[in-house]
Design a binder for these strands. Sequence first.
DNA 1: CGGGCTATTGAAGTTGATCAATAACGGTGG
DNA 2: CCACCGTTATTGATCAACTTCAATAGCCCG
Lengths: 246, 246
Amino acid sequence: MQPPFHRLVEFVPLSAEEAEMARGWLVDSRRIARGKPIRQEGEPVKGVFFLLDGWAGSSLLLRDGRRQIVKVHLPGDMLGFPSLALSHAGETLEALTDATICSFPNAAIGRMFRELPRLAMALFLSTQKERVALMQKLSWVGATSAMERLTAFLLDLHHRLQAAGLAQAGCFDFPITQQQLGELLGMSTVHINRTFKSLDETGCISRGRGRIEVLDFAGLQRLAASFPPDFAGHDAWARLDNSSRF
Amino acid sequence: MQPPFHRLVEFVPLSAEEAEMARGWLVDSRRIARGKPIRQEGEPVKGVFFLLDGWAGSSLLLRDGRRQIVKVHLPGDMLGFPSLALSHAGETLEALTDATICSFPNAAIGRMFRELPRLAMALFLSTQKERVALMQKLSWVGATSAMERLTAFLLDLHHRLQAAGLAQAGCFDFPITQQQLGELLGMSTVHINRTFKSLDETGCISRGRGRIEVLDFAGLQRLAASFPPDFAGHDAWARLDNSSRF
DNA sequence: CGGGCTATTGAAGTTGATCAATAACGGTGG
DNA sequence: CCACCGTTATTGATCAACTTCAATAGCCCG
């Protein structure tokens, strides 16, 4: 199976040498069972992770026991970068399905910056893009209705699954519970359920045992009034690589 | 006046040479009037900005005309980095008060990665820390009540203002309108007003013409049930700089 | 077949939104 | 200095979205 490097090469195509090295990183992978933590909030930050297979979640715990799932990670995503600037992790990483990850120690990141500036830049851009995604999620949660949030999430998810080669013809696995969906979108399980049901009844999607099929993209997009335009900039590297006065 | 470099040197102390260079960047600064855009969503991304003075905001526009303010920036903050990975800006940057900024073209970032890996790393860590802050804000907006959000924001703001040397004895300027506060915290102006009033009545803070004084930090923290522990990791650089197997 | 998690549904209660009106403030030009 | 105007803050009343509580049904797994 081809390792999911689509997120890594999005901004900077890897040289043969870099690709070889990247493949070497994957030898030491680890399997995590559904529901198990990869790293808990508050633990010392020893490195970051690369999600090879399965879904994972980043979440924050609130004092009252609630938690907010901040992001659902798909195969090819890098986990744990935000905490790199902290001594102790600011986020919990958890397997949402059975998952396979591999780890990179802190020092590997430092070394990359010193020795592989192109790759470091790619990584940098990739995390900036995550930041945009996070900003968009904040705007959904802060300023839209339950239905808009749900549809926007589904559209975004489909988009990302497709990029990872995990969706075909609008059809994809959907292995997360409504409880998790509630924690992700900032609403109660009950309301998720009702909203989901009423979305189902519009005919735009159809649900079945852990899978979802999108039947009407245009309809979904109409419901997700706030779904943002895609300003993807795959030429970002070119724009940055241009030498010029510093 | 000392330029506000506290955010830049947080992770990596600047060498004399780097500090000299950094000072040189500031020569070309620009003044922006309150309420004026620095860069609008959808415009081509030509570079990033450094906020020298005043407050600024990053916001996203939704199709229905609402907007979500994603972050309030204070002097010393860097603006516009998330859009660096995009061809067209994904966020609007706007002066919330009269402000002074200076700009860095894209190519300067690329050059930094190639020639000043220490600085690039510092920048990288700084943006990762922003990501944590954003995740925390998402958790406030998604999972807490109006009062918790408001108090958490005030505590965070005070913390950041203090780091910038802009707060003393719990007292600081507060130049943003309740409308903007609503857009920031994801609630209506009216409800901001009521929540603010009732917070005022607890005696934990006192408000006056564009200023706020915190009278009871412990009380505020009790109200902000979700205010996160501070996992600041100023030794991050050391952990990453350690050479080791890659 | 049972046990535990997950989904679904109903009813009642809250929070916060919306609509609408008034008051206070800040800056401007006369 | 004052009158005026637009912006911002404040308050009341009503309304809608969403939460909470509670109960039942379905599903998966051993």
